[in-house]
């Protein structure tokens, strides 16, 4: 309940002067407030907590982390 969950922004609109959006949580859809991520675009992934986006998720950073772990993995495989 209190966790932040990643979801994909599929709609952006204004309501009661708030920037709102519709989020796809892997097939479950919910309206959330996008006010804290005004730079959000349709198709972006965001971290959502109690109906608000807290930040967009950086695909670039995610790939960098995974590639770092892949490097450790390949080093590991070369060990005798």
């Amino acid at each position: 309940m209190f966790l932040g969950v990643p979801g994909k922004i599929i709609e952006i609109y204004n309501k009661d002067d708030l920037l709102m959006g519709k989020i796809d949580f892997g097939g479950v859809f919910r309206e959330v407030c996008l006010s804290y991520t005004p730079e959000a675009k349709i198709g972006d992934y965001a971290l959502i907590h109690v109906g608000f986006t807290l930040n967009l998720i950086s695909e670039e950073e995610a790939k960098e982390t995974l590639s770092l772990l892949e490097q450790i993995s390949s080093l590991d495989n070369k060990k005798p």
């Binding site: 994909k8 695909e59 995974l66 993995s73």
Partner: peptide, 20 residues
């Protein structure tokens, strides 16, 4: 990328456990 399955990769989990 959906930002959760990728971070549950069993092979990389084993790698990190070995490294630790």
């Amino acid at each position: 990328m959906e930002f959760f399955q990728e971070f549950r990769n069993l092979r990389l989990v084993k790698t990190l456990v070995d490294e630790i």
